[in-house]
């Protein structure tokens, strides 16, 4: 059974135009994704594609002007606000994007301790620090004294020490050097191998490929493809969706060519397939109605032409 299931999720934001008119921007639309125990799922997409908002929606920390529809299930039971409040930080944990999420006035050691749910918080914290090669002196440091890599590992410790079953990591790698990235990613692998689940949100398809099992590709607020890592080889012949293909081909180690244009803004989404305006193989049919997610070769794709 899936540990986390997101079904038909839509998120929209109430916004105001220059005049005092109110409009609703749909930033995530009919999104479905599942996370299995023992698995790492990478959520890959451009900035502004709504991938961070998915994390915030799952954890129930969207801003006030957001409205949400669809269902999110944890261990088969729907996640209501009340249930979420008891699970958040215990079974569901977030590894946030930046060091700014640490309390600047609290020593790192005590911050990690407050996240722990075990009996002996001090030894739990020491254990986790040891595992992530954070020396004893780090315990009594303040966040500003940490280097980028140490801060990352501290954020990671906070999630790990909580004993969570599901970890959602939001862009844990950018700006780190390759050694630290590798280490952070192998930590996730280790965690998943223990039977937990990780959702790795990133724009960096390359590092995602190194450790994950499945990749969900986001475009303009919805998934266009869910593929196994094995599909990303060669010229991307096994890849289903044209956008995923474009991403793969744009990597510097591949062809380093880009497709023109950019992701549509939530205020002006095309009526049919969201990718149609930039798609090479688009036909008039693509502009009729948004395609549904369908199964194809052990994966999922949202394209009527995919084979």
């Amino acid at each position: 059974m899936s540990i986390l299931e997101v079904e038909n999720l839509s998120v929209s934001f109430k916004q105001y135009t220059d005049g005092f008119k109110e409009i609703n921007h749909k930033v995530i639309s009919s999104l479905s994704v599942t996370l299995e125990a023992g698995e790492i799922l990478a959520v890959v997409g451009a900035s502004g594609s709504g991938k961070s908002l998915l994390a915030h929606a799952i954890l129930g920390i969207l801003p006030r002007n957001a409205s949400i529809s669809g269902t999110i299930k944890y261990k088969g039971v729907e996640l209501t606000a009340a249930r979420l409040a008891t699970l958040r930080g215990k079974e569901l944990a977030l590894v946030p994007q930046s060091v700014n999420f640490l309390d600047p006035l609290m020593r790192v050691g005590s911050q990690v301790r407050t996240a722990s749910n075990s009996e002996d918080v001090v030894s739990a914290q020491r254990k986790v620090f040891e595992r992530y090669h954070l020396g004893k002196e780090v315990e009594s440091m303040y966040p500003f004294q940490l280097s980028g890599g140490m801060a990352r590992r501290t954020l990671l410790s906070t999630a790990m020490v909580s004993g969570a079953k599901v970890i959602i990591a939001d862009e844990p790698t950018p700006g780190l050097d390759p050694i630290v990235i590798k280490e952070a990613l192998s930590n996730f692998r280790e965690f998943a191998d223990k039977g937990c689940a990780v959702m790795l949100i990133t724009h960096d398809i390359e590092s995602a490929l190194q450790i994950t099992d499945k990749i969900a590709v986001f475009y303009a607020g919805t998934t266009v493809e869910i593929a196994s890592v094995k599909d990303f080889v060669g010229k991307g012949e096994a890849i289903r969706h044209p956008y995923t293909k474009a991403l793969w081909r744009a990597l510097p180690q591949n062809e380093f060519i880009s497709i023109p244009g950019s992701q549509p803004h939530p205020s002006s989404l095309p009526p049919g397939c969201l990718f149609a305006p930039r798609c090479e193989i688009a036909t008039p049919e693509c502009e009729q109605a948004p395609p549904d997610m369908r199964e194809l070769r052990d994966g999922m794709v949202r394209c009527i032409h995919a084979t």
Binding site: A46, G175, H203, I205, A250, L251, S258, P260
Partner: peptide
């Protein structure tokens, strides 16, 4: 381009 997706990265660099 560290924070950008592969496609935007390639586009800007080109």
């Amino acid at each position: 381009t560290t924070m950008l997706d592969a496609n935007t990265q390639a586009q800007i660099w080109h």
